[in-house]
Each structure stands twice: as structure tokens, then as C-alpha cells.
């Protein structure tokens, strides 16, 4: 942080930056047209990551993505446009055919990977330690079903259970 640079961002950091912080951070520092484009990009990401998507608004969203990329082309250098930027165009098509994005993204799997990473006790053989501990845990979880007097941790319960029944989220 010494020379005021952002380094080593994790993917979830980028998620929060893109959805919430960047919008606020660029207020009043860039020329108006550039600022608007970046804001629209953030809002576009916000819109496709929503849990509830209106299917009638998808066409509008697709147009928005295309216009956005054209406007980015006006202000950013050409080397900015690698294949990842191009893929933004195809998001809305996949939402239309498959599902909302939150059912298909990688965040839960990345979180699971963190748990697996904690399993490594012998750094020389990381895979073997993961396998061993995973099997042990599965076995213990199975055997606890047959022990009636044990209080199992199991799957944690939601804190909001009962309070928010039938209200979504």
C-alpha cells in the first residue's frame, strides 16, 4: 500500500470492487463520458449477477453490453481488448439459454478449494494429504448417523431461519 497501488486482488475482491466500490470511487475524478462508461459497465455486471432476472429485459441488456463495449473502444487503448473483454457480449445469451449467473459461477467452488487447501499438512505431498483427510471426514460423517446420543455439528443452520420464511433471499 505504500505507493498507493492495488496489488494481488483475489477474485472476490474484484467482485466487490466491480459491483459496489468502483462506482463510488471514480465519482468526480474522471472526465464525464469516461466515468459514465465505467459506471455503466459496473451497473451491467450488477444487473447480470442479480438473483432474479426479468426475461423481458434481456434484449435490452444485450444491447447495453454491445454499446458499452463500443464506448469503451472510444476511450481505452486497443490492447485493453483481450478475449476476456470480448466474452462480455456472450453473457446475456447464456443467461437466456441456461440460468441466472449465480447458479453457474465459481465462487462456491473456490470457497471449497480453500477448505481443501487447509487440509494440506505435508507440503511435499499435498494431494495425498487432501485425499486422506477428505476420506476420513466422509467416513466420520457417515458413522455419526448411527450414533444416536451424539450431537453432530453437521451443516450449520442459517441464523435467519424462521425470521425470513417466505420472503426470498
Amino acid at each position: 500500500m505504500e505507493d498507493l497501488k492495488l496489488m494481488g486482488l483475489k477474485s472476490h475482491d474484484c467482485h466487490v470492487l466491480m459491483q459496489d466500490l468502483l462506482l463510488v470511487a471514480i465519482r468526480g475524478i474522471l472526465p464525464k463520458n469516461v466515468r459514465q462508461v465505467i459506471t455503466r459497465l459496473c451497473l451491467f455486471f450488477n444487473a447480470i449477477c442479480r438473483k432474479v432476472i426479468d426475461p423481458t429485459g434481456l434484449d435490452e441488456l444485450e444491447n447495453e453490453a454491445i454499446i458499452l463495449l463500443c464506448q469503451l473502444k472510444m476511450y481505452f487503448p486497443p490492447s485493453f481488448f483481450d478475449i476476456m473483454v470480448h466474452l462480455i457480449i456472450h453473457f446475456v445469451r447464456e443467461i437466456r439459454i441456461c440460468d441466472p449467473v449465480f447458479l453457474r459461477w465459481m465462487y462456491p467452488i473456490e470457497r471449497c478449494m480453500k477448505i481443501f487447501k487447509r487440509y494440506v499438512k505435508n507440503p511435499y505431498r499435498p494431494e495425498a494429504s487432501i485425499v486422506e483427510r477428505y476420506i476420513v471426514e466422509e467416513a466420520i460423517e457417515l458413522y455419526t448417523m448411527y450414533m444416536s446420543e451424539v450431537n453432530v455439528i453437521g451443516i450449520p443452520r442459517s441464523r435467519y431461519e424462521g425470521r425470513k420464511v417466505g420472503k426470498g433471499t
Binding site: L9, M18, F80, M84, V101, M106, E110
Partner: peptide, 13 residues
């Protein structure tokens, strides 16, 4: 196409 990775790369650039 995984949205997470695309978003991260776009955000980085």
C-alpha cells in the same frame, strides 16, 4: 463462460 473469471480479469485491467 465463467462470470467470475471474466469479471476478475476485466476488473484487473
Amino acid at each position: 463462460i465463467d462470470v467470475m473469471h471474466v469479471k476478475k480479469n476485466v476488473c484487473d485491467s
